[in-house]
């Protein structure tokens, strides 16, 4: 229950600048690594550690403030706006790669197989999909089938959406046991998904000849599924924090923004996967 009637405005923030320094160090290290510098990875890891410390510190601070009733209803609305628009920006980010897939399959690959491009540059190239292009970049490969692990993963993520909602019902009904069980199931399904995806990637690289370098098919396949897999990991970590906080007695039926944000994020990741399953695997 919020006890504060005024909008809480913090007066001194140290975590933002620490987090920024961490992220900048990490990216500078990564850039150095890409340029072939041997100290790159070390700088990158230092930056990552600073960034993780910031995440832990900042979120602990927020959780404590929330539990001590410093946030009124309006603060909660601001946080919801924040999360909603953050997810919107993520949707746009994924839309770029879906758009790339669409453009490649419907425009650029067909253009390579017709007209002057075909006659003058690559007479033997026929428009197909999947393809690694007229240059057969990355060598022969076998495309990924939708049925098998990807379909199983679809079922897993859909189920995890259900368990997440079941946990929310538990929270609203003040049934903490159901809340924690539902969340643990969701996290477990999330990590199961990532494990299966890792197996899928392993097969692709070792048995199917399908890599990130397999022309535009490999590029779009791994970019889309890879970014999605990364988001599943992030979502599962967020949900794990929510499990931890639930076990400490945090969240009340009328005040549980962190749970809601985590659940929104999880459903967003879920919906992106459905798009991937249809457009990357199925069609």
């Amino acid at each position: 229950m919020s006890t504060n009637t005024a909008y809480y405005i913090p007066h001194k923030a140290t975590w933002p600048v620490i987090g920024t320094a961490g992220l900048m160090t990490m990216l500078a290290g990564f850039a150095n690594y890409l340029n072939g510098s041997s100290i790159g990875p070390t700088i990158m890891i230092i930056g990552l550690v600073i960034f993780v410390i910031m995440l832990v510190g900042w979120f602990t601070l927020q959780a404590n403030e929330s539990e001590s009733g410093m946030y009124n209803h309006e603060v909660g609305i601001s946080y919801r706006h924040g999360m909603m628009w953050f997810i919107f920006s993520e949707i746009v980010f994924f839309a770029v790669f879906f758009g790339t897939l669409w453009y490649t399959r419907n425009l650029s690959v067909p253009w390579l197989g017709e007209g002057a491009t075909k006659e003058l540059l690559w007479p033997s190239f026929e428009t197909t999909w999947p393809t690694n292009g007229p240059g057969k970049v990355g060598g022969d490969f076998e495309p990924m089938s939708a049925w098998g692990l990807p379909f199983l993963n679809t079922l897993i993520l859909l189920t995890s959406g259900v368990t997440c909602t079941w946990a929310h019902h538990g929270l609203l009904a003040k049934n903490r046991d159901q809340l924690i069980k539902g969340l643990i199931a969701t996290v477990a399904l999330g990590f199961l998904f990532v494990t299966f995806q890792a197996i899928e990637y392993h097969d692709a690289y070792t048995e199917m000849g399908l890599t990130l370098g397999s022309g535009v098919y490999g590029s779009t396949f791994f970019m889309l599924t890879g970014f999605h897999g990364f988001h599943v990991c992030v979502g599962a970590i967020i949900l794990s924090v929510v499990v931890f906080r639930s076990s400490k007695g945090h969240f009340k039926p009328e005040n549980h923004f962190a749970f809601e944000a985590a659940a929104w994020y999880w459903h967003f990741v879920d919906v992106v996967w459905l798009g991937l399953f249809v457009f990357v695997y199925l069609i």
Binding site: T100, S108, L112
Partner: peptide, 22 residues
Amino acid sequence: LLTDKFFHTSFFNAAGGGDPVL
């Protein structure tokens, strides 16, 4: 751009089926 340069993708490489116009 980063993955095309450093991780062998072909988004903007016509030989791999991509397109710089994209």
